[in-house]
Design a protein around this nucleic acid. Structure first.
Lengths: 149, 149
DNA sequence: TCAAAATATATGTATATACATTTAATGTTT
DNA sequence: AAACATTAAATGTATATACATATATTTTGA
């Protein structure tokens, strides 16, 4: 739906002004969808993001700093998010022997299982955007990448 | 910068998958910029959003529910955000006599003054995206609006 | 008219974000 | 090696989000 209707605003002072609000609004919209998807499994979008990064390591453990730099939201607190995942036994954490300042995080069977259950639902979420063509998606990606230069 | 580099990911399984992450990442990026802009004035992006809605009313008071439906982030708690703005004396709140369930919020001189000081900085923020053309901005807007249908 | 439903806002609580500070370990310099 | 700087992670604190529930008022309708 048109952003104008979503936030009941007649017009914007420029396409750039609308662009900023549109990105923020769309992210909030996506976040709400994700929250609903993940909630039944007891995790948040950011916790999901961490689990996905860990699964991508094929079981290998990675330092917390690696999670930090790969997360979508750089401001989220990986240390505390890992705490929460530990409590739910979805990840393991151990001190790195070579550098005892570091901790190494890996995903557990339970974590992998939760991701597996979520895979279909996450795919559906992406497929539900099929009113956008692949070409359009690629075009938005190109422009957003450029916007942040 | 390419999202691939920003979150150190070699590739995405589809343009749609990248699109979701790109919107979330870009929103977080914008949010960080906004936070830095607003922080010296003691307000958050959401508080700024409320002040902007109120200024748009030309001094008229509006019900809390009006703020709620015009805010970019529908999940933010307008009631408590208004509390914060009240403490800073940037808004007024009074009970509506016709319907005492409602409260009417209006912006104060102090609030208008803060917005005025911020206008230039917010414009700069938008102008800094000038590597995106107007046409490209409009194109992203069109596609995002469609995505949320 | 009075009870029930609906509406507007406020509050409670758990979690997350933003950012500063602290703690512990490692590296570097003299 | 001792002093200092750097790095990795954890912690403190204020604010914000997500969502459920409560409170007060108004509307509806039996």
């Amino acid at each position: 739906m048109e952003l104008e209707k979503e936030i009941k605003q007649k017009s914007f002072k420029s396409p750039y002004h609308k662009l900023v609000l549109n990105i923020l609004f769309s992210a909030s919209w996506l976040n709400t969808l994700q929250n609903k998807t993940f909630k039944p499994y007891g995790i948040s979008p950011q916790q999901y993001n961490i689990l996905r990064i860990l699964r991508g390591q094929q079981g290998k453990a990675v330092a917390l700093s690696v999670l930090q730099e790969r997360m979508i939201d750089k401001m989220s607190n990986a240390s505390r998010l890992v705490d929460k995942l530990l409590l739910k036994e979805m990840v393991d954490r151990k001190q790195c022997p070579e550098d005892r300042r570091q901790v190494e995080i890996s995903i557990t069977e339970k974590g992998l299982d939760v991701l597996k259950q979520l895979d279909d639902k996450v795919n559906n979420l992406e497929n539900s955007m099929s009113n956008v063509t692949e070409k359009e998606a690629a075009e938005v990606n190109r422009i957003l990448d450029k916007m942040r230069d």
